[in-house]
Nucleic acid binder design. Structure first.
Lengths: 347, 347
DNA sequence: GTGGTTGCATGCAACGTTGCAATAGGGGTG
DNA sequence: CACCCCTATTGCAACGTTGCATGCAACCAC
């Protein structure tokens, strides 16, 4: 059985309250008593009971992270960074997966774990901002990568329109003209895909090109398989083949390159590919993948900062924040103009 | 403010205890009262306070998962499966990362979160079984992928020796003779790498070959970068080049293939590659990766079953279990004998 | 010496929940 | 009618912790 303050107090011959004071340093304790209590603490290996502590304090020190899939490389990297950022603040993270399903998002938002967490970080796929705000309880919440036009909660994301625009412009600058966009997701309500599509079209317009609807290929998910299928579909359609693809995620891009290889389409000679997310796989893929790299560490840090602000200033009337984190385009082999050499170290 | 049993009781005009009985179905309640209480519960949107509940019960419903890195594909996939298996048992998972560092493993084992979790699932890298048992408290614990010769705790893993043997035999059967082993980790204490090395040597011996120490390349980590470096080192050494590599993880294998491409070594024609873990990247890599596929879903399920057994039978005198989960060799492009066609769908 | 201040230690109560024991009411049995 | 049993409901206490108020002694200034 684990020992409690009472046990320690008995052993040290002081009151429970004094032990608590030593543990928390909350009141002044004489050097002599402190030493005696400390010894008792060590001997019994005292560990505070979190349940009791949070029952008193009304806080648990737990943060809920609600993401579509832990095993997806992007969310995996992000989750790792969030766990570390949380650790720096003495918080613990609970991770839940929604698989992008609306009912799961609703359930997790309302509460399977809600009563236990002090704050919630959610990356919604199936719900749009207004439904999110309806479902949400009083728990502080931060949205990741969600459009949130009504500003229902704090919100951290890259500028998706700008990033997609830059990615497309890069393809245009290397001489590509028939640029496909693989990744629109009509099923989803979170707006991210729409923003990337808008950025893609904007870049084409600026270059004096008219977006060809036949080159915009929707996908059911952002997985590699979906990318592979979408590419097959695009190639099978007949008509002039694309000379470049802007994929809305690195995973899609990797699936696309897989199909390209199967069909004998050379990357980047016949087809340039750009992805989004900068997952590690893309640095080691063959060819290595050009991508939009969001500053994930900063996403994690800023999201937690938002939560901290709300948790520690309870009466908070601070309006919902909208935070844009930086991104940069990382050019690798998959979009290098021919003749630029294919050899490269991972960067 | 969230409402408590007291609020609900006041609204329904019954005692706190009766509301508790309705919520938990723990005693008989008349149909009439139940209906009235239920209505009050719904109106107030009552959610039980987990802190109070676990203070009474002495359980928190939280399980700690201690792994080297969440963002590594293997542990990411495993974590996802564990979270789901836990959900089926109404448990919640807390994930911590050790980065393979001994001090972090010790810290997490002893307690940053230990006082709050009902059980611990740990995948140790830096600590060996005996040190693990010294550090561990009274919390039930399951080891993943650890050798544990002294049987200090429950233990779930594949048969690493057998699996490595089969992987190597596969390379031998496709006519390879100079097979390198990339992945020994002298720094680590968990025994996994040693077991795989043993299996590799056993297969060579059975084929009448003598393991060549020059072909056994240690690595500092299991990351892609380490694989890429190890392969560079192997190629730079001079001497006869290997015609196959057994990599102790898929990530290493992907790094190895990256270097092969940079150096103009064709896979699988010049070099066959086999990995370990069956991560998703390997199914979509170019070429796709032959690998040993552990049954991850079963690892997750069995590990939780072990914990459940110990948590729910407190006086448990059950000796530590040793559970071996099945694995299978999945042959893909990276080890196909030449002439066998290079085109393939992901499997 | 008196009154006030400071430093240290303590006791009580409460957070929201549930185990236990007890109570009140109703129906059946002898 | 007295008794018992069963069901429905209740009150009390406790889990381990911390906020608040208080007690107690020693110290300082006047």
């Amino acid at each position: 059985m684990r020992s409690s303050l009472k046990d320690v107090a008995a052993r040290a011959g002081v009151s429970v309250r004094t032990v608590s004071n030593v543990v928390n340093g909350s009141a002044s304790v004489s050097e002599k008593t402190r030493a005696r209590v400390q010894q008792a603490l060590d001997e019994l290996g005292y560990r505070p009971n979190l349940a009791a502590r949070s029952l008193r304090a009304g806080r648990t020190g737990l943060i809920g992270l609600v993401i579509p899939e832990i095993h997806s490389p992007y969310f995996g990297e992000l989750a790792g960074l969030l766990v570390e950022a949380a650790q720096r603040r003495s918080w613990t993270v609970i991770i839940d997966q929604t698989h992008g399903r609306a009912d799961e998002e609703r359930r997790l938002l309302k509460g399977t774990h809600a009563p236990i967490v002090d704050g919630l970080i959610i990356s919604p796929w199936a719900l749009d901002a207004s439904e999110l705000s309806e479902q949400a309880g009083p728990t502080p919440m931060v949205l990741l990568g969600e459009r949130d036009p009504r500003r229902v909660a704090d919100h951290v994301a890259v500028d998706n329109v700008l990033a997609a625009d830059e990615a497309t412009r890069h393809l245009l600058e290397t001489g590509r003209r028939r640029i496909a966009a693989i990744g629109p997701q009509p099923e989803l309500r979170n707006g991210t895909a729409e923003q990337r599509l808008a950025g893609y079209r904007r870049a084409l317009h600026r270059a004096g090109l008219t977006p060809d609807p036949a080159l915009e290929v929707p996908v059911p998910t952002l997985h590699r398989t979906a990318g592979a299928r979408a590419m097959e579909e695009l190639l099978d359609r007949g008509g002039p083949a694309p000379d470049a693809v802007f994929a809305f995620s690195d995973e899609l891009a990797l699936g696309i390159m897989r199909t390209a290889r199967d069909r004998g389409v050379r990357v980047p000679e016949d087809l340039a590919v750009v992805g989004f997310d900068d997952i590690e796989d893309g640095r080691f893929s063959n060819p290595s993948l050009t991508t939009v790299s969001p500053d994930k560490a900063q996403i994690a840090e800023r999201a937690l900062q938002c939560l901290a602000d709300r948790i520690y200033s309870p009466g908070g009337t601070v309006p919902p924040q909208r935070i844009t984190v930086p991104h940069r385009l990382v050019v690798r082999e998959s979009s290098r103009p021919a003749g630029n050499g294919s050899r490269s170290a991972a960067s």
